[in-house]
């Protein structure tokens, strides 16, 4: 197999993937039924009364209200969540499902903890780093790159 045939195939597949990266964003509403933080920031009032599901970082917790900061595409929206309690601490991440009410408030039906505190994020990245390193070591114990053909070859033939 000529190297250029493989290059053409890889380029075609990458271009298709790039196409999906654009297509998925253009047609976003078809794949995720809820407004994201950018939508809420742009035209909050048009979503009032609708069901929403947002991810947000907890900023403060009071007796009857959880303050969160939802983020998407670089836009941040502060929201107050009522009608639910959470085990998350400030700095943790929660998922909120409920009805959007006026004045930056969600009447929650369900609040799920994604990260109970900001430290949990480090645990996940730590475990993932161990996984990545272990995988690379394991992979290149069995496979090597043949510099003549630029293919991956089994080490033991």
């Amino acid at each position: 197999m000529h190297v250029w045939v493989r290059v053409v195939i890889v380029l075609a597949l990458f271009l298709t993937l790039g196409g999906l990266f654009v297509h998925a964003e253009v047609t976003e509403e078809k794949w995720s039924p809820y407004p994201d933080a950018a939508d809420l920031s742009a035209e909050y009032d048009s979503y009032v009364g609708q069901r929403v599901m947002v991810f947000g970082t907890v900023t403060a917790i009071s007796e009857d209200r959880i303050e969160i900061k939802a983020e998407s595409d670089g836009t941040t929206v502060p929201l107050g969540v009522t009608g639910a309690s959470t085990a998350a601490e400030p700095g943790g991440v929660v998922q909120v499902y409920g009805t959007l009410e006026p004045e930056q408030t969600i009447a929650a039906e369900r609040v799920e903890v994604i990260n109970s505190s900001r430290w949990v994020e480090f645990y996940k990245y730590g475990a993932s780093a161990v996984g990545a390193l272990g995988f690379l070591l394991l992979f290149f114990r069995h496979w090597r790159i043949d510099r003549d053909t630029w293919t991956l070859e089994a080490r033991d033939g």
Partner: peptide, 22 residues
């Protein structure tokens, strides 16, 4: 417009599997 989300979907998995196979 651009999003990485397709990487975590069936379409992304199939395309990258093709790239890796090659």
């Amino acid at each position: 417009p651009f999003t990485y989300k397709p990487l975590s979907t069936l379409g992304g998995v199939l395309l990258l599997s093709g790239i890796i196979a090659v």
